[in-house]
Design a protein around this nucleic acid. Sequence first.
DNA 1: GTTTCGGTTCTTTTT
DNA 2: GAACCGAAAC
Length: 645
Amino acid sequence: MPIDFEQALNAEQLAAVRAPDGPVLVIAAAGTGKTRTLTYRVAWLVERGIEARRILLLTFTNKAAHEMLERAGGLVGEAVGGLWGGTFHHMANRMLRRHAGELGYKLDYTILDQDEACSLVRTCARELKLAGPEFPKADVLLAVFSLAANVERPVLEVAAEHFGEHAVNLDEVGRVHAAYQARKRALHAMDFDDLLVNGLRLFREQPGVLAHYQEQFQYILVDEYQDTNTLQAEWVDRLAERRRNLLVVGDDFQSIYSWRGADFANFLSFPRRYPDVTMFKLETNYRSVPEVLDLANACIAGNPAQFQKTMHAVRRAHHKPALVRLRDGDAQARYVVERIRQLLRQGCAPGDIAVLYRAHFHAMELQLELTRQQLPFVVTSGVRFFEQAHIKDVCALLRVLVHPADELAFLRLLGLLPKVGAQTAGRIWGKLGGRFEPYRPEVEPLLLDLLPPAARAPWRAIAAALPPGGPEAVAHDPGELLFRFTAAFYEQYAARTFENYARRLEDIQGLINFTARYATAEDFLSEMALMTNLDAETEAPGVNGTSALKLSSVHQAKGLEWKAVLVLWLNEGLFPSHRALAEAADESEERRLFYVAVTRARDELYLCVPEVRRVRGGGVMYCVPSRFVTEVPAGLFAEEYVGFG
DNA sequence: GTTTCGGTTCTTTTT
DNA sequence: GAACCGAAAC
């Protein structure tokens, strides 16, 4: 049954979906059916007989990739199988797993996640005796290294700008960076940035590899193109060079990732780089009521350097967004809970409501109040699922079994034993010769000898839990190993260590189920570092993500929508965040972030502006309302005053 | 010499 | 929370 494109799409979308070959730029305002357009474009290509494996779909989150592939699958069925879809990091990783040898890496390199990269930087600084109180912390250093990598500029230059007048010895920063790079090589490890850097090196330095992929990918589609950085833009340009069938979709109004190197100049300059471009604009907004769109259009209009576009509403008039003045954070929390109850009484489902904020700690009082009043909610947490301590703990043994030279995994594993800290674990690692192969008969007695007495019994329990089939068995059933390790050791460890150990064990159960998706431990581990969260549809127990009230940062809410949206702490210094203002050239990105928050709402929008904020020491601080609510015409709001006695 | 523990401080955003 | 620091405990 052929797809009825005319029926499914409006004229703007249809034109973009049927865009001719060659470079295509789709400027898609919020809520105008960007995902729909991309999905139908994929279906349209497949219907025209393009093999799925010759299509590459790049996104910024795993979720976006899954969603689009699923929806495209719904349209054309099995035919989308084999399509390459995922994040830039994923695609680079996929290519590097085959070709990293040509860059001098082993093919089974490990990927360092944020935490691991950060501890490695810390280790390097300590070894160089540069870890004093006046020296920048590891996370700050890593952020500088990362930005430098992503914008392809020298570390020292970026560091000089970042630290400004602060008396930081740049030479020392450079030495830590050099040590960090060397350590990564020695560990056969890449951090997130290395995936992009090396992915691009592959194209720059290996013409054969580049030619292979240029040949394979007949059509390239990029979602959220405004968020690409230098590396990503060049990577795509090179890949598309031969066939030039490059379709990018984006919205410069929603560019909110410059702090990690994103540069929407890539988006604005696209027509200059591709003079034969075909351009489309999607401006018909299906999502929001006109009052919400009026506010969104007004708030963003003054931002500099952007493609002009105005969202047109198709929905009927409803009522104005509320601007709610409150006394303080507690009053805000009580108001929000009360408002949510009212929405629920009016027939809103909990999953139709979201509370958004600039930074996770802005929702502290609200989380307390929701818990106190027993209203269930889910937080898109600041800590990613796969970066939680207990998840990484149970994977440590698996990692070192798959890669016997994985030092970081070994140190983590041994650190779980009583009386073993970093020192002891490091010494043992050295005595074992930088490899750990517990299935070799001589290793067990040696290790027991090296361990402090208190650690011996727990280690015996772990060793006894090793699957009898040896490393091959582990490689083909990682879940089994995780299960055995948890039952034999980690359950008790968790019970002793964590207050909320029951929930953590549930997470582990979810993780074990999750491994079933992967054929080998290798596949599972190499993907793990790149995953942000178990997807909603995954069999993660306990949480029903779509039916619960959602608390989320604005960044994580991008691309989503709710019937009712409440935004917290619209105050100077908080939203816009003073730290962000200090780092950026101007306020325009914070304003775009506000725009993203506003455009998440379908029917109801509540903007909360408390008057005072508690500060440490028990004092209070007067808060100025955010420029984002004072700079637009007051007539766009319905003002409310709550809790002033 | 190491590990562990308790107190303190600070939380931007993420692949 | 969780990262850091200093001090007590092993």
